[in-house]
Design a protein around this nucleic acid. Structure first.
Lengths: 238, 238
DNA sequence: GAGTGGTCTAGACCACGGT
DNA sequence: CCGTGGTCTAGACCACTCG
């Protein structure tokens, strides 16, 4: 009868967003509690909870026990970037994937890698470099160190047919990781391998992955010029 | 009595992840339905639902009505990148923020911008360029077009004290957006403004935001050399 | 058509953390 | 202390979609 029935959590989420945008609830404002909103909207508290929790995950609301729920002072938008396996990334764009192992050796890692993997100097690591191509053109250069302390099976994998990228995912799944995007000038030897002059602006992704606190691998992916990462932003993200 | 009680959704999530990692449920495998799992774990179906839905959001499970829930064939890890206001981004690192408006003019946008904003040629836009600095050093160059059709109030804002970045967030909040990360060679005039030679590898973020399907603004952020974007990755499995 | 996930309800207990 | 969000329960109906 009277306006839209606030019966599902999405409707409630929209209404809350509307009040925020309309400045009925300005940034920093403490909004009514779940019980009050449930009464107002004529629904169960769990439904309100679902809507508010989603908005809190998106960074629009800040919730604390006893203190209540308030509109975030500084709305932090979040973009979720998909990190697929490189082969999939290429094949999904309808291009032919090719993989070539360049080097593979067991060696003590340089200090930078030791620090990233949280190792002491003596720990042996597997150093692998490879080239992934799309339609015959260089796509990305992979420079990877694998911690043999965490993944001893890697010592017996040769990585000639299956990339370390995929082998690790199927063999040593990670629990969490850290990723960095940067712009750099192509350096030796990635520049030659990607067949571009040294200093050419290239997109670099550096990634470290762990399994329950034990470092698995650290990798630098140097993409051929022109590579881009696209993503979507929005209030309803997860 | 017997092992851990699967009473909360996090415990159930961990157990499901364990079975996936242990290959009890290999990729592509259709796992038992919610009712069956609820019976096995001795909890309510809603609790199982909460755990499985979270894993589906993370890209580890794929759920479809009637077809059931299956382990994803190709695990897509997701990294969530925070997109703060530039001033916050600088101040949160303990650096002094400074903002300077460079140009501001009403003009018909070039074809590229017209296409991005979904406008026809006649629609007037506001073109704003500015420099954000950290500790007195150039931090990022902002090149922005604002659709006056969507945000007519922008015509009266001067953007000398408050950046368009912040003004838009408080005045015309967006519902969703699109973002692209790329590496490029610094070009005129951003190169001079960032005080680096043309061609220097720089990180570029291009962003378009909409409010319910109406384009608000498109912006190119050219960061000074050395800029990086960091993020964390959630669990992935294959 | 029937089975699965998606969601809502009304009630309950718990844990955290301001006061 | 005690209010608030966090979560669980047992049951129900709905919506999608596969067969």
């Amino acid at each position: 009868m009277s306006g839209p029935a606030f019966k599902n959590w999405q409707t409630i989420q929209d209404e809350v967003l509307r009040r925020i945008h309309a400045r009925e609830w300005p940034p920093g404002h403490v909004i009514p509690g779940e019980v009050a909103l449930a009464r107002e909207f004529g629904c169960a508290r769990a439904t309100v909870n679902r809507a508010l929790r989603a908005l809190a995950d998106a960074g629009i609301l800040e919730r604390r026990r006893k203190a209540g729920t308030r509109v975030a002072l500084h709305p932090v938008s979040k973009a979720t970037v998909d990190i697929p396996v490189i082969r999939r990334e290429i094949e999904d764009r309808g291009r032919a994937y090719d993989y070539r192992l360049l080097t593979r050796e067991t060696a003590p890692p340089p200090p930078r890698v030791q620090a990233e993997l949280g190792l002491n100097g003596a720990a042996p690591c597997l150093h692998v470099t490879a080239l992934h191509s799309a339609d015959g053109a260089p796509y990305v250069h992979e420079d990877r160190w694998i911690s043999l302390a965490t993944v001893p099976q890697a010592a017996e994998a040769d990585f000639t047919t299956v990339s370390a990228n995929e082998w690790l995912l199927t063999t040593a799944p990670y629990t969490h990781g850290d990723i960095t995007f940067a712009a750099e000038g192509a350096a030796h030897p990635a520049a030659e391998i990607l067949t571009c002059p040294e200093g050419t602006p290239v997109f670099v992704i550096a990634r470290i992955t762990w399994d329950h606190g034990r470092a698995i691998t650290t990798v630098r992916l140097t993409y051929a010029p022109g590579y881009r990462v696209r993503s979507e932003i929005g209030p309803a993200t997860l």
